[in-house]
Computed example of a mutant assay.
Amino acid sequence: MIALIGLKTFLQDKLPNMTADKCHLFIVNGTQAKGYMDYTVRLLFLDYRSDPIEVIMLIRSWLKSQHLHLDTTGNDLQISFSSEIIDTDTFDLEVDFPQRDKIVMDEDSYHICPELVWSDSKGGFIPKGSE
């Protein structure tokens, strides 16, 4: 989830009607097995008044720019959304998408490991997104 911190700032810059107090980032469900944490990220936009498709497109473009747009099988992430209507122009929008982190844990702490990818130019594995 640490890698997602910049997403909220990115959305604030791209969506001028959205304020920080109206956008919340959560982990809502997850599992941990074999050193990996698979979880669902939820972005909650309160009192939203703009195009929900624009939000999804912006999230997808940011995830792609951060190399976080593929699932474990190498396919594009499935982004889902739901809304609760407040009035004819306003709704609360929830946008969900899966993420996965490699986590090394001991009794007192944990460490999130970046995913490694092969780099021909460097001749070895490097952290994903650093090329």
Rank of each mutant, 00 (worst) to 15 (best):
D101V: 13
A33K: 10
G74P: 12
G124P: 00
F26M: 02
R100I: 11
D106P: 00
L116Q: 11
S83M: 14
D76G: 12
C23K: 06
L58G: 00
V104E: 11
P114H: 09
W118I: 05
S130H: 07
T90D: 00
L93K: 03
S50L: 14
A33L: 07
P52Y: 05
T88E: 15
G129N: 11
R100H: 11
I112Y: 05
D21T: 09
L63P: 02
S80Q: 13
L4C: 02
A33H: 08
Y36G: 04
S109P: 04
E84C: 03
D120N: 11
D47K: 14
G129Q: 12
K22C: 08
R60L: 05
T31E: 10
M18H: 01
D92L: 03
I56C: 14
L77S: 08
Y110P: 04
Y48G: 08
M37W: 07
T88M: 10
D47A: 14
L93D: 03
M57R: 15
K128I: 11
P98I: 12
M37A: 11
F91C: 15
G35W: 09
N29M: 05
S121T: 13
S61P: 01
D106H: 02
V41S: 02
M105Q: 12
S109V: 05
L7G: 04
A20C: 01
D108C: 03
D47R: 14
W118C: 07
P127Q: 10
D51A: 14
D38P: 00
E115H: 08
D13N: 10
L15N: 06
K8I: 10
L44H: 05
I56P: 04
V104R: 10
L44D: 02
L63T: 05
L25K: 00
I53M: 15
G74K: 13
S130M: 10
F125Q: 11
E94V: 12
F26C: 01
I5C: 01
D92N: 15
K122Q: 12
R100S: 12
Q66P: 02
D38Q: 07
D87E: 12
L116M: 12
T90F: 01
I27P: 04
L58V: 01
R42L: 05
D38I: 00
Q78K: 14
N17V: 08
D71Q: 10
L77E: 06
D21C: 05
S121M: 09
F45S: 05
I27D: 06
P98V: 13
K8F: 00
K102F: 10
I5R: 06
F45V: 08
I56N: 12
K34A: 09
V28Q: 06
Q78T: 14
M37D: 10
T90Q: 06
D38K: 07
K64F: 04
P52C: 06
H111V: 04
I5M: 03
H69Q: 13
G123D: 07
K14R: 10
D92P: 02
E107R: 09
I103P: 00
